[in-house]
Every structure is written in structure tokens, then in C-alpha cells.
Nucleic acid binder design. Structure first.
Length: 476
RNA sequence: CGGCGCGUGGCUCAGCUUGGUAGAGCGCUGCGUUCGGGACGCAGAGGUCGCAGGUUCAAAUCCUGUCGCGCCGACCA
């Protein structure tokens, strides 16, 4: 049976994907616009998702020895300019503070677009000996990048994120940490957000400003576009040299530290929406659903109905559960539950109470199950777990069925002309080919995956000997 | 920064061409009837029409300027 469209207020994704996205975000009450372009109110429903992300990710960080800290929001211009590539990368989009009250500042301050320079300035002071290493710090904060085009969660001028910054005694330690954090991101995205990712390295063209290597986790959205969902950078000793971060090693020689940084942002919430949601609204994986179960009483004014609903709520208190006892009609409540992406809905009315059971309806499949009250807790647990796994499986199946292989440029062009998704193709390693592909097809290299395949011996673009297999795609 | 579109109750918009008492639907408040996929009746509240000039007896409407927002490009998480 075709999917029944129940909510007229949401534009269908087939009709207009961008509008669908905006509708879902608004209807689920995740954000509200404000009078400043690109600056969003993250409403309670949206912020609760972020809190669940933060909590689970923060736990994973700490298991690897990360400590949290907080550094200032302002960076003096002179500090920002110490690392040349870095400042060139970010200068076009920084916001500046020029006045304190009425008085013009002697040195203007940039609102952090990222905090490498501040961490460097700090590490320069606290790192003296190899005994002070490694430094493994993270901060949860907001950063500002003055984007021209903005979209809720995907690209806002101020956004929430975490940025980890580490300093190590050796290049090997720094590289190991860079990859370790990338793996944490990949695991988090798959296990918690149910978003499958491709792990790999960015090409030189797509690398972070000032990094020697940038690793990424790339996800495929429902419309076939790619979303860079998390990055981890190895800076080598470039920043250390620019900022003078040196330590005395065991051999009593003065050496520069090797650094990394890694971050994910509220952008992941945008990914969550574009991977799982449907034409009825938001669909959330249970692990990041602020409300996992909504109990909807039917004919709630009849004696015993609300009492039963409260009883079920108490039985389910180990889950994030709520009762919708507002005086809206049941149909309204069903639609609300769906727009807000609440994984499970329990319907309970006089008929059920008499029969000693209730109805559970899954958000993702809309599958309804009748469950005796005595089996409710076990069934809810089972359904939430199943939903979490099946959402990942479905997303993976979608990604795999939208991943293509191209062996020559004609095929490459034809695929991007006809389809949307990832295309795996060989690459010679030169930026000219990347530029040409971007120019002609608006397609960029997403990453050189860790899992390499030898699809052919020559570059898909120029025909010269190939160095790497690359995932290509159109990106958000 | 270029292209397109839009600023009128909380929301979506009509009214503007041709100047003349600010409208509708939804939402909101109260009361009553309803309740297994966005129920209904009755009674209410709510707007200096983005902002600033100008034209006019009279401006949401015409003119000039300005600010802001959304979408699409280029650039970027």
C-alpha cells in the first residue's frame, strides 16, 4: 500500500525537498527564525535532541580521556593571523567586534569561527615538558561564521558544536588521536543517530585551513546529496611552529608539539532529519528522541481512561514517556506525535481497557501492534531497540542503492546527469581534475575512503594513472 | 556578492493595478457538545499594514530611499 499522507501542512519531499526540510523543522518545532538572518532559536524540542547528542557523545569522549574546558569567544586579530593558511581560510567569514560601549577598541576582536588559535595560545603557556603531554581538551560552545546563504541546522551563522584540540609529543600520537576521534564520530553517527557513514580522508583541495590531513565522515541524505557530518584534523607541527608551542623531551631537546582538532555540530540534526524523516514529519531514532513514547488516551473523559494512561506512564518510567492529555481530538494527537518524530505511540481507550491491552504504533513503519498491559514494558523495549537498528539498516540500504561506480568520464557525467548519490571513481590525485569536475558537474570529492577498491587503473577524469578511489557527490 | 521572491493580528495570506472606516482562514480565550487518523456550535480578544521621507484634503495602496527575511547560485561545517 502506498504511504498514506496524513499531514497536509508538510510539502512532500518528492515535490520540493528544500521546502519539505523547512516544513519538517518548523512543524516539529525544532527551530524558529529570528530577526537576524542565519541566527535561529533552537526551541525546546530541538535543544532536547542536542542535549541527548551532547550527553552520549561527551561520554564517549571521556572514555578516551578527553577533558572539557572553556575558552573565550573573542580572539584578538593578531592571534588569529599567526597561522597563514588558517587565517586565509576563515577571514572571509569572521564577524568582528570593533567597539566596547562607545569606545573603539585598539585591537579589534574576532568572534571565534573556531578556536585553534586560542588553544594554541593556551598550550604555549602550559606545555613545557613531555610530562605535560598529551593535552586532550574539548569544549562545547557556539561559533560564528558569517555565511551568506543560511539554512536551519545545516548552515547558520551561529551554531553549536564541540571542538576538541589536542597536543602530542610525536607525530604518531597526533595521527593516532586524529583517527581515534574520527572513529568515535563514525560509531556515534551509526549507533546513536542511525546514520551510516563513509570514513575517509579529504583531498588537499577540501582539507581544513592549516591542516596536514583532514579526515571526514560523509553521509548520504534522502535526496542523494552528501553531508559532511564530522571532521578530524591532523595539524602536524604547523600551528606549533606558528605559535611557538615547544616542550623539552626526554632527551632534553626542545621540540614542537603535534596537534589535532576535531568537531561535530548541530548540523548533525539536519542530517538526522534528511536521512530518516518522511512526508508526515520528523522521524527520530529512539536514542536521540527526547520523548520516546507518547501515550494517547482515547475518550479520555470516560471514567478510568486517564487513570489507565497514568498507570502505563508509571510502568514505562524507565523510558522517556509522556501522556498527551490535552483536549485535542485523538487524530490531532496522532499527527502531532508523527510530526514531532516520537518513536512510539500508545493508544489506550475504553475498548482496550476492557480487553486488558493497548495499541502500539511505530513512527517509522506505522506498524500497529496490540499488546496486553502485562507485556507492555518488554514490548516497548523491544520495539525501540528494533526501530533503532532497522533505521540504520534502512539508511544503509538507501545509501548503498544510491552509490554508483563510474570508470570513465562519459559514465561519470551520465550518472550525475541522471541520478543523485555517491559515485565511486578513480582519481589521479591532481587538483585540475577536481576543479574540472566541480566546474562541469557541481560535484566535489567527498573523501578518499579508507576502504579502497581498485575500480580501474586510470583517473575517471583525465585518464592518467590513478592513485586513489574517491567518493564523489553533490554536497550540502 | 549575483538572481528570484516576500514584508498587513501569533501563523498563512487577501486587499495595492484604479488612494476614501483594515479583511479572511487557521490559531488563541470562555462555555457546551465531541473523541480509535488533524470534530463542531455559540460568544470573544487581538493589527501604529517592516522603517524613514515625499505627493495628497486623504496613503496598506502612489513615489523615493532604507532595513530585514526566505529560496537558488558562487564560497563554506
Amino acid at each position: 500500500m502506498a504511504e498514506k499522507k496524513l499531514v497536509e501542512a508538510i510539502t512532500s519531499m518528492e515535490e520540493d525537498f528544500a521546502q519539505w526540510y523547512t516544513d519538517v523543522v518548523k512543524k516539529a518545532e525544532l527551530i524558529d527564525y529570528t530577526s537576524v538572518k542565519g541566527c535561529m532559536v533552537i526551541r525546546p524540542a530541538g535543544y532536547a535532541i542536542w542535549e541527548l547528542i551532547q550527553k552520549q557523545l561527551d561520554d564517549m569522549f571521556k572514555e578516551t580521556g578527553v577533558q572539557n574546558a572553556y575558552l573565550p569567544m573573542f580572539i584578538p586579530e593578531s592571534l588569529l593571523q599567526k597561522e597563514k593558511d588558517h587565517v586565509e581560510g576563515f577571514a572571509p567569514e569572521v564577524a568582528w567586534v570593533t567597539h566596547g560601549g562607545q569606545q573603539e577598541l585598539q585591537e579589534r576582536l574576532c568572534v571565534r569561527p573556531t578556536s585553534e588559535t586560542l588553544f594554541c595560545d593556551y598550550y604555549k603557556n602550559v606545555v613545557q615538558s613531555y610530562r605535560d603531554l598529551p593535552q586532550v581538551l574539548n569544549q562545547w560552545c557556539s561559533v560564528v561564521r558569517w555565511e551568506k546563504e543560511t539554512r536551519p541546522f545545516l548552515r547558520s551563522r551561529e551554531f553549536l558544536w564541540q571542538e576538541g584540540h589536542t597536543a602530542h609529543a610525536t607525530a604518531e600520537d597526533a595521527e593516532a588521536r586524529t583517527l581515534q576521534m574520527l572513529n568515535v564520530y563514525a560509531e556515534f553517527l551509526e549507533k546513536v543517530l542511525a546514520i551510516p557513514v563513509i570514513k575517509g580522508q579529504k583531498t588537499e583541495k577540501e582539507r581544513f585551513a592549516g591542516a596536514v590531513a583532514t579526515y571526514t565522515v560523509e553521509a548520504l541524505m534522502h535526496d542523494g546529496k552528501a553531508l559532511q557530518s564530522g571532521t578530524s584534523h591532523n595539524f602536524g607541527d604547523g600551528f606549533a611552529k606558528a605559535f611557538g608551542i615547544q616542550f623539552a623531551d626526554r632527551d632534553n631537546k626542545l621540540k614542537y608539539v603535534h596537534q589535532t582538532s576535531w568537531g561535530v555540530s548541530t548540523r548533525m540534526i539536519g542530517g538526522l532529519i534528511m536521512v530518516h524523516s518522511d512526508n508526515s514529519g520528523l522521524v527520530l531514532p529512539p536514542k536521540v528522541a527526547p520523548v520516546q513514547v507518547m501515550i494517547i488516551p482515547i475518550q479520555q473523559r470516560k471514567e478510568g481512561v486517564l487513570e489507565k494512561a497514568a498507570e502505563l506512564e508509571e510502568m514505562l518510567k524507565d523510558f522517556r514517556v509522556k501522556v498527551d492529555d490535552s483536549d485535542k481530538s485523538p487524530g490531532w494527537k496522532f499527527s502531532e506525535q508523527e510530526m514531532r518524530g516520537i518513536p512510539l505511540r500508545i493508544e489506550v481507550g475504553p475498548k482496550d481497557i476492557e480487553a486488558g491491552k493497548c495499541v502500539i504504533c511505530r513512527r517509522d513503519t506505522r506498524e500497529k501492534t496490540e499488546v496486553p498491559f502485562a507485556e507492555l514494558v518488554g514490548k516497548v523495549k523491544e520495539l525501540l531497540e528494533r526501530m533503532q537498528t532497522e533505521m540504520l539498516e534502512r539508511a544503509r540500504a538507501h545509501r548503498d542503492s544510491h552509490t554508483y561506480v563510474a570508470k570513465d568520464y562519459e559514465e561519470f557525467k551520465r550518472i550525475f546527469g541522471e541520478k543523485t548519490g555517491f559515485v565511486k571513481a578513480m582519481w589521479c590525485g591532481c587538483q585540475d581534475c577536481e576543479d574540472k569536475i566541480k566546474e562541469e558537474l557541481s560535484v566535489t570529492s567527498r573523501c578518499m575512503p579508507f576502504e579502497q577498491e581498485q575500480l580501474s587503473d586510470v583517473c575517471v577524469c583525465c585518464g592518467k594513472p590513478a592513485k586513489k578511489m574517491v567518493y564523489w557527490g553533490r554536497a550540502y
